[in-house]
């Protein structure tokens, strides 16, 4: 494809995605609202993602404690391991890592599920039966993903602190009270706000991109594969890009 064609395609995709995500968002405030579908998706996205969030959060906190303690030991400052782990988990790794993990699991699942429905004409059948797939399939997923990612991030933060505590107490043989006290006292209101705003944006990115690529699937089963790859790649990339801008805005607001 020529540069001209590629640029047009890119602009068209951005335009389609913007219209798509806006329509999906405003549908939340207009009937019919599919609350049961929201609950089902919350179960799939939220409860289904708990094991990976627990494991990745715990071991990330543990790795942070291992790495930081090794470096901090050079300055005789291993006592602030708790602070280091807590701040890093709450501000950055908790929200971003949870976003990327949930994206890998759920953006792919949304894209492949909706993509399969497209290629087997189930989406057309839904439209032909007078049901708007955007309201029925996309809006519940977006709001379930936003809601659940918020709580999953809190869980990941908690597990990260626990993982750090495990390494600090059982491997580095430090005092647990010192670790927890240091972690607790170092956290400020701005850190918590920053860490909890990010999953709201990441949740929106994961579900909207997953559904967008799913619903624009073409080319049969191969197309479903391509849609799944695109959904995971672009949602992960945009989570990190959005993280940069949110961090910049938050630092500006709380400075």
């Amino acid at each position: 494809m020529s540069i001209d064609g590629t640029t047009k395609q890119l602009v068209l995709t951005v335009q389609e995605y913007s219209l798509f995500s806006w329509r999906a968002f405003v549908n939340l405030f207009r009937p019919p609202i599919y609350f049961v579908d929201f609950l089902v998706q919350s179960d799939v996205i939220g409860f289904g993602s708990i094991p990976i969030v627990v494991l990745s959060g715990f071991f990330t906190g543990g790795v942070l404690a291992l790495q930081s303690a090794a470096t901090l030991a050079n300055f005789g400052a291993t006592a602030i391991t708790g602070q280091f782990v807590a701040l890093t988990m709450f501000r950055e790794l908790g929200p971003v890592l949870t976003g990327v993990m949930v994206s890998g699991r759920n953006a792919s699942s949304m894209a492949s599920e909706l993509g399969s429905m497209v290629v087997t004409e189930q989406i057309d059948a839904m439209r032909a039966l007078g049901v708007d797939p955007l309201r029925k399939l996309v809006t519940p997923r977006i709001f379930a993903c936003i809601t659940m990612l918020f709580f999953l991030t809190i869980l990941a933060d908690f597990m990260g602190i626990l993982g750090g505590a495990f390494v600090t107490v059982f491997m580095n043989h430090q005092n647990s009270t010192q670790y927890f006290s240091n972690a607790w006292s170092s956290l400020r209101y701005s850190d918590v706000v920053q860490g909890l705003v990010k999953p709201l944006i990441s949740g929106y990115i994961i579900a909207s991109i997953g559904c967008f690529y799913g619903l624009r699937t073409t080319g049969g089963t191969q197309g479903v594969g391509r849609a799944t790859i695109d959904a995971v790649v672009w949602s992960s990339v945009f989570i990190i890009v959005a993280d940069f801008f949110v961090t910049r805005i938050m630092l500006f607001l709380f400075s």
């Binding site: 087997t120 189930q122 059948a125 039966l129 007078g130 708007d132």
Partner: peptide, 23 residues
Amino acid sequence: PEEGLFPLRTRIGMVFQEGALFD
């Protein structure tokens, strides 16, 4: 607009090539 079509479509029955049942 698409939203105007939904009420009209409820008056139509369509049988797709492969059935298009929700699996």
